[in-house]
């Protein structure tokens, strides 16, 4: 726990706070965009009436429900358990893990604690905890701003009970924990292999993009982490609509079609966390540090 405390203390740095601000701003911008789209659609529906009126009113109500304080957590969790989270995790791992090689500070760490497995575990755990903090901050920011954004755009009040939204958010946040762990260990492995900040960022992003590309292949798609993330998080397959607030930036890049169930996703994600962690440990345990 002392070692984890040291790693968390290192995270009190400008990079971490910049990423938190970036993630929160990204969520608010999406909320503003979705609310504005819903307002325009609603305006058209009221003016024109006809067949579009009902779905447009439903879309506006959906946005209002998504941005209610209780349900906003599901948005934050969905964002962070998809591409924006993968991007943030890559940046964080680049600075927090790869930066130990670039800044030549890893030798200090190992001089004071030669148990390399513990050092790696503390790096992964602290990266994961930082990503969880980002989700919570995004939820708080969306909860605080969502109602105002809806009101400013003249959207109807949220109809969903607070407890329903909160329950959905809790479930999505709990699921996102595993996906964030996956992103953290991908960053860890990239750092151990590339031994530098830039390499870690590039390697992490390249790995996620490659997995998404593999996920589109009909023969192997089901057996890739891209599909497991989709299954575990319950992201709608092939979701390419922007008419409401998107709850992820993942399924729009994967193939549409039947998604395996949660359990299949859970088993796959568990493996996807363990395998990179074991490979990182095997590489790091005997590596020379300069």
């Amino acid at each position: 726990m002392r070692l984890l405390g040291a790693e968390l203390r290192k995270l009190n740095r400008p990079l971490m706070w910049a990423l938190v601000v970036f993630a929160a701003a990204f969520c608010v911008m999406l909320a503003i965009g979705a609310a504005n789209n819903a307002r325009l659609d609603l305006h058209d529906a009221l003016r024109e009436g006809g067949a579009r009126a009902v779905p447009n009113r439903l879309a506006a109500a959906t946005v209002a429900n998504q941005l209610s304080p209780g349900a906003a957590g599901a948005e934050a969790a969905g964002m962070m358990a998809s591409m924006p989270g993968a991007f943030l995790a890559a940046m964080l791992a680049g600075g927090h893990v790869g930066g130990e090689w670039t800044g030549r500070t890893l030798k200090n760490v190992l001089a004071h604690n030669g148990y390399r497995g513990r050092v790696l575990a503390a790096k992964a755990a602290s990266t994961w905890l930082a990503l969880v903090v980002v989700v919570v901050v995004c939820w708080a920011v969306l909860a605080a701003s969502g109602t105002l954004i809806c009101r400013a755009n003249g959207l109807p009040h949220a109809t969903e009970p607070f407890s329903t939204g909160l329950s959905h958010s809790g479930a999505q946040l709990a699921r996102a924990l595993l996906v964030l762990a996956f992103f953290a260990v991908v960053g860890l492995l990239a750092a151990v292999l590339t031994r530098g900040t830039v390499g870690t960022i590039a390697g992490s992003i390249a790995a996620v993009v490659a997995l998404l590309a593999l996920g589109t292949l009909p023969t192997v798609g089901k057996w890739t982490p891209a599909t497991w993330v989709e299954a575990w998080m319950g992201f709608t397959s092939g979701d390419r609509t922007l008419s409401t607030l998107p709850d992820n930036f993942w399924s729009r890049f994967t193939a549409s079609g039947a998604i395996p169930g949660h359990l299949f996703g859970l088993a796959g994600m568990a493996g996807a966390v363990v395998v990179p962690a074991v490979v990182a440990w095997q590489v790091f345990r005997r590596a020379d540090v300069v």
Binding site: R2, A6, R9, K10, N108, V109, H112, N113
Partner: peptide, 13 residues
């Protein structure tokens, strides 16, 4: 000082 504190936390007390 904070650098030393972090290194102190990194290993045994």
């Amino acid at each position: 000082r904070a650098n030393l504190e972090v290194l102190a936390l990194t290993g045994p007390a």
